[in-house]
Amino acid sequence: MAQTISVTGAVELAVVVRSGFVESRHAGAAVVLDPEGAVALRLGDIETPILPRSSLKPLQALGCLTAGAPLDGERLALATASHAGTDRHVAVVRDILDAAGLDESALQCPASWPGDAATRDELVRELGQPSRIRMNCSGKHAAMLLACTTNGWDIATYLDPQHPLQVHIREVIERLTGAKVAATAVDGCGAPVHAMSLAALARAAHRIGTSSERSPFALHRLAGTLVRAVRENPWAIDGPGRPDTIAIERLGVFAKGGAEGVMIMSAPNGAAVALKVLDGSGRATTAIALALLERVGALDSADVAQAMTELPLTVTGGGKDVGLIRPTG
């Protein structure tokens, strides 16, 4: 059976401090690449494969783009998103489906309540139900369907790993990572998710983050367009007050978290980080990524410190703030 990083291959990446007592420790692995793509910092085992989960979405969105899907602006940002399911998010997903000549019944992601609490509460008051379009991966699925209708590919089987779109996406992923896919699994939304090392994932994040819309190569031109779309629409990739959106808005990074404690992030100067928290918790991943980019000089310390105050890192007790989740070292 294929396996991810072992406990012995992990190092401490963050701690949870309650009333001055270190209550929990998050161990994992991480790699930071400098603006030229060389390894600037290596923590733990960065060669054993991981499942990137939603941190793979920018690569999958580029697969849809290079397959001809007409995506830009908010629609392209939603294609990379793990969105909060607000009405604004849903409106853009419907716009993508309209472009494909489809409605939400074509989506094959599971039905879900929105992640945004206010939106969920409003739906409950209106006696609404979980729906596929509210699921956080619906933008990715809508983009895949648009790529299919653009090429005349079957939409009923668009999640099959052997479907022409999924074969194409896998090829794009291997071009960006510079490595063959180590294994393929089924993601939480039903789409294929491909295993790769943190080193390979960081290479992809670096290549996307340093791509130019003026590149002579189509893949890099489209990657530059994707990064611009996300930076211009940070609300779309996550949601107001949520970690990815905060990091993008405050620091101009390109960030994409994934389930089970995965994160990729690239700084404006081109430095990039990929990390995996071994216990699967994502509560510290944004803070860890920012701290690592700060550590190699890619982000300003004062700017990072300010952004940290806006992230959900506070530990409470009795209704009061009594501690903090903080990156180690």
Rank of each mutant, 00 (worst) to 15 (best):
S82P: 10
P114S: 06
E171C: 09
G101M: 07
D244S: 12
V31I: 15
P58L: 07
L159W: 05
Q108E: 12
G128R: 02
L71T: 04
T286W: 04
K276H: 13
R214I: 09
L278Y: 06
P130I: 12
S138L: 07
D187P: 05
L146P: 02
A289K: 00
P327H: 01
L251C: 03
I264V: 15
Q166D: 11
L219P: 11
E126S: 14
K57T: 08
I169R: 00
I155M: 00
V227C: 12
P312R: 05
N233R: 07
G28V: 01
G190C: 03
N233E: 06
G241E: 13
A302I: 11
G115K: 08
Q60Y: 01
I50K: 05
H168V: 07
G318W: 00
L226W: 07
A271G: 12
A147F: 00
A10E: 08
G152F: 04
E294A: 10
A91Q: 14
R125A: 15
A274F: 01
L165C: 12
L127G: 05
K256Y: 05
S215C: 09
Q162Y: 10
H83A: 11
M196K: 08
A229M: 05
A284C: 14
L222H: 08
V230K: 10
V322C: 06
V193M: 02
V186P: 03
A81G: 10
S197G: 11
T80N: 11
V124E: 13
V172P: 05
I46E: 08
V11Q: 14
R221D: 08
R88P: 02
D238V: 00
L51Q: 04
V31S: 06
L59Y: 02
Q129I: 08
Q129H: 13
V31G: 03
M144C: 13
R170M: 12
G85M: 10
V167R: 15
L51W: 02
L313V: 08
P164T: 10
E249F: 05
V186G: 04
E310C: 11
T210P: 04
D303R: 15
V262Y: 03
A106Y: 01
A291Y: 09
V315H: 01
T86D: 05
G101N: 08
Y158Q: 02
M144G: 15
F217T: 14
Q3F: 10
K256N: 10
A111Q: 11
E260S: 06
N233A: 09
G9I: 03
K320Y: 13
V7W: 07
L293R: 01
Q306Y: 09
A67F: 03
R18Y: 07
L71F: 07
A307M: 06
H26Q: 13
V230I: 09
R283E: 10
G28K: 04
A40H: 01
R228S: 15
H163R: 09
D187A: 07
A259E: 04
V262W: 02
L13I: 03
V315W: 01
I248L: 11
E12L: 15
G239C: 09
A205D: 09
D87E: 15
D103T: 05
M308C: 06
P240I: 13
E171P: 03
L33N: 02
L201M: 14
W153D: 08
A156R: 11
